[in-house]
Design a protein around this nucleic acid. Structure first.
Length: 590
DNA sequence: GCCGTTTTCGGCCCGACTGTTTTCAGTCG
């Protein structure tokens, strides 16, 4: 089993245990285990085969029991304990817990008392007004459940970061029209730069406290009223003294949190998360005799606040550095902090070139010269023109003759740039397909003439792992190939990765001195953060590329940078942060 | 189920909001 499948199985165990009202800390242990398995960069099956199940206890949060269960899943593809749990809980019942407002207790009660086991039955039971008769339920709860069923059906749907970013931009502009708000900051997984976000959190500072944990009610009301007026708000889900939640027309939930100035940093830290990062924070605070909440850092059980206005002072109170939000996933950040090795993360301005883009010669919308102009406007120092090869017929991919014509044009452009005295260089590139049957789409003599050869796979994506790997490894070993583009082929929320053993690909790239792409298209972000971190570990440079098909397409680089930051990459880890306009200087070897 | 400068048992983060509750349970993040 792959790590992803193992993680899904452990999550299902946690769901089922939760439904059975098991010890919540036991549930948490399985959830934590699932997360750690999902974060692991090397194949756990390989670990078990090489070193045995005991080696898995090296993973934080995995003890003897979980190690054995992970090993069982990895090697046999199933888990006896999970099979037993599934027999005890009717299929479909877990879906009940996905309904907003229905947790394990209420879902279990509905199932036990009314025999409801599907969303359809739940809907019928609510409509027949049977649910309101149960102990602890009422008319209001029944209505909430009914409203929530529609959302449950598309539960798990998340918004891509770039789409969330567009909403955030509009929201901030809207909220800035409210004079009661002194500062505002989006928090949550959006601030951490996750590739998808579940809902949005916005924090607003409504001024100094008027008493312990009290704010000026007038300022809060103004902020909340303004929030409710945001264009696209479909319904107000909740509105309390400090928190208000709305659902947008498209289903996206946004939470507004009002906080006093004294607590703004603590609240920002808290609502940025991740949850696991915060659990670690609070655990560390206890050891120091402190208590951390969204209101601040407090001495013992007292009301004496020792930090809260800024994130820096909150972290400092616990002897920790200000972690960049992208690192707050409880992966390696605390370890790095203790060793004083917190990386200086890459920034957008560190990128000096873009090595993957298309022109109107194939499926791009702009000419070579227009792309050059667009790249120069954005302050880049070099680009590679990398149109598709002939196999990509839909994009009218280039054969050898057309490609050599394009390269002559590149030579002309470079000469003109030199005459102009411009510090800009265009590399002769190609995005060459790796054929379904194996091998490259263009002859070796053509590829040998290129400055920069991207190898990528667009056809035969459903082939079995062995075949996919054979194709990819052939490309990695090919002397003219510089880099593998979008190595897993995934499209976020739409298409799973093809069958790639990414750890093997990384090892091969390391062995042959090749690079791997982080495709910055917000649909792709491929490699992902976990695998970029693994590449770094293996000494394989990453190239962040736009894969632009138009001038505006160059602007996606920032999404790639965000993902790279989540992987802990510095400018040293990213080859196109280096200067020099020849690809040897980028760190590849032929 | 995990874990250990409270060290092999007894803890495990903390608070807001809602609804159905006369004092709190369930859910959420």
């Amino acid at each position: 089993m792959t790590n992803r499948e193992i993680a899904a199985a452990l999550d299902e165990v946690a769901d089922l245990l939760e439904f059975q009202a098991a010890n919540p800390f036991r549930v948490r242990a399985y959830r934590n285990g699932a997360r750690r398995v999902g974060d692991a960069s090397q194949s756990l099956l390989a670990v078990v085969e090489e070193s045995g199940p005991a080696a898995l206890t090296e993973i934080d949060g995995v003890g003897k029991d979980l190690a054995e269960k992970i090993a069982e899943l990895a090697t046999t593809g199933s888990l006896a304990m999970l099979d037993e749990l599934r027999e005890q809980v009717p299929p479909g019942v877990l879906k009940l817990m996905r309904v907003p407002g229905l947790g394990p207790k209420k879902a279990a009660a509905i199932h036990k008392e009314l025999g409801v086991a599907t969303l359809d039955q739940l809907k019928a039971a609510c409509e027949a007004e049977k649910v309101r008769g149960l102990k602890g339920f009422g008319k209001k709860t029944e209505e909430t459940i009914l409203a929530g069923i529609a959302h449950a059906e598309k539960a798990g749907e998340r918004t891509r970061w770039a789409d969330a970013d567009a909403v955030v931009g509009r929201l901030l502009q809207h909220m800035d029209g409210c004079p009661a708000i002194r500062r505002r900051e989006p928090a949550g997984s959006y601030r951490r730069g996750k590739e998808t976000v579940g809902d949005l959190d916005l924090l607003v500072d409504v001024g100094p406290e008027t008493g312990p944990r009290e704010m000026d009610p007038g300022a809060v009301a103004q902020a909340m009223d303004r929030f409710g007026d945001f264009e696209g708000v479909a319904e107000v889900i909740a509105r309390g003294d400090t928190k208000m939640s709305v659902r947008m027309d498209g289903g996206l939930q946004i939470d507004l949190r009002c906080v006093p100035t004294e607590s703004f940093g603590a609240a920002l830290q808290y609502f940025t998360g991740s949850k696991e990062h915060n659990v670690e924070m609070r655990g560390r605070a206890r050891v120091k005799g402190l208590k951390v909440s969204e209101w601040g850092v407090f001495k013992g059980e007292s009301d004496e606040r020792v930090a809260g206005e800024t994130e820096e002072e909150v972290y400092a109170a616990l002897g920790l550095p200000l972690f960049p939000p992208e690192l707050r996933e409880h992966r390696r950040e605390f370890e790095w902090a203790e060793e004083g090795e917190l990386p200086r993360l890459i920034e957008l301005g560190d990128l000096r070139g873009d090595l993957h883009m298309h022109t109107s010669a194939t499926d791009g919308k702009a000419t070579l010269r227009e792309m050059v102009a667009a790249a120069r406007e954005r302050g880049l120092e070099y680009i590679a023109i990398t149109d598709h090869s002939k196999r990509v017929t839909m994009a009218s991919g280039l054969d050898a003759a057309r490609l050599r014509e394009q390269w002559k044009e590149v030579d002309r452009v470079n000469e003109e740039l030199a005459v102009e005295g411009a510090e800009f260089r265009v590399l002769k590139g190609i995005e060459c397909d790796i054929l379904e049957s194996g091998g490259m789409d263009l002859d070796d003599d053509v590829l040998a003439e290129a400055d920069w050869v991207i190898a990528s796979l667009h056809y035969g994506q459903n082939q079995p792992r062995a075949k996919i790997m054979e194709r990819l490894l052939f490309a990695v070993e090919h002397p003219s190939v510089s880099i593998i583009a979008h190595p897993t082929g995934r499209l976020i929320g739409r298409r799973p990765p093809y069958e790639v053993a990414v750890d093997e690909l990384i090892a091969a790239a390391a062995e042959h001195g090749k690079l791997l792409e982080l495709n910055a298209n917000p649909m792709r972000l491929d490699l992902d953060d976990i695998h970029c971190a693994a590449a770094k570990e293996a000494g394989v440079p990453i190239v962040i590329s736009s894969d632009a098909h138009s001038p505006a397409g160059l602007d996606v680089l920032r999404y790639g940078v965000l993902q790279a930051r989540r992987a802990g990459l510095t400018r040293e880890d990213v080859a196109n942060c280096r200067g020099g306009a020849s690809w040897e200087a980028l760190g590849a070897s032929s």
